[in-house]
Design a protein around this nucleic acid. Structure first.
Lengths: 194, 194
DNA sequence: CGGCTGATGTCAGTTGATGACATCATGGTA
DNA sequence: TACCATGATGTCATCAACTGACATCAGCCG
């Protein structure tokens, strides 16, 4: 009932199927022991098609990055004028933290896959760097100085990294947004004059 | 006179020749348009030999990293007990800055090659991350707390990045160690409570 | 009907990377 | 002296990541 009998030429959402297939295979057999051909096969597609959607074998794990970037940028932009750059970044990080606190299991599974492979860690660094750049741009949009923007953004990403690691390691206890607040406080302590 | 007439079977320092050849070719024709076979040929060696010295095509540009790491770690270790973690990191960064202030042209040439290619930027991020980890370890050796060590180290690397960019962009003016001091001061301003 | 478009497939080729095995000056040792 | 171990290199074969050129064909639109 309600079934659309027109034969679609292909199954829908090839891209999404590739993401799922890759995540599963990387988790089961490891990144190195998985070929692109196998991913494509599991998704009912071809190797060539995989490379149409993703620039390379790693990129398939990072399809969520643009959404994170948007959330960061929007949150910084919405911060009140009275907020310092670091305040605005803190709010943005907490927003991302809240988003990940849902998706909890998915985020951890993905983190485990990445932690198991150097090449994937490389790509993760690249993505983090791109988020830092986006944050810095957003701060410049708030009239922060060039160096201030870069430093605040990179320090913020470091804060996120620390909090995220704690979150992943620390079993069920601990909510990511809270861990982010704590880490940010520690950063403030670290840089305070004696 | 003093000429050693024993025919060495191979030219000396194959590794060094590969580094020079790669730097030259990457600079002339770009990283992508250079094959490993070409690098090896210019060095009078074989593709297979290249991969005995370097894990991959990029790694050849980062042979200096261990020296930097050692300098950072040693400087942190030598910092007086009275120094805060951030003070110690600042001293270490300045030491590296002084080292690069020599080698000036070499450092810039290398930076230009890396700036021209995404894959190389990736690897640079990896190296920076490894330096951050080394710094954090050194701080833990000074009894800094876990999070404090990580945050200080990563913030320090961010400071270095900002200073280095300014140094590279800013023509002849500006000494790297001085730029590092300035950037560190800006970090302190950024994180100061209002 | 007929042509255009977009998602996919097919095929061939380049290159980065790795394993297995060969070569042979050097340097020590029987 | 003769011999053998070693280490740096070479040769060959192979895999898998990626890329370019071209083919297919359902659905849509005029």
């Amino acid at each position: 009932m309600g079934y659309d009998r027109r034969m679609a030429r292909w199954q829908p959402d090839g891209r999404g199927r590739l993401v799922q297939a890759a995540l599963a295979l990387y988790g089961e057999r490891g990144f190195d022991n998985t070929t692109v051909a196998e991913i494509a096969a599991r998704a009912g597609l071809t190797e060539r098609t995989f490379f149409r959607y993703f620039a390379d074998k790693r990129e398939v794990l990072f399809s969520g990055t643009p959404a994170l970037r948007d959330l960061l940028v929007d949150t910084v932009a919405r911060a009140p004028d009275s907020a310092t750059p670091l305040d605005a970044v803190g709010a943005a990080l907490e927003a991302v933290g809240a988003m990940l606190q849902e998706r909890r299991e998915g985020a951890r599974q993905r983190a485990a896959v990445i932690a198991a492979n150097t090449e994937l860690q490389e790509r993760e660094l690249v993505k983090m760097a791109s988020l830092a750049r986006a944050l810095a741009d957003a701060l410049r949009g708030r009239r922060a100085g060039e160096a201030t923007a870069t430093l605040t953004a990179e320090a913020g990403i470091a804060v996120f990294r620390v909090a995220f690691d704690r979150w992943v390691e620390g079993g069920t206890q601990g909510e990511l947004p809270q861990l982010i607040r704590e880490s940010l406080a520690e950063l403030r302590g670290v840089t305070a004059a004696r």
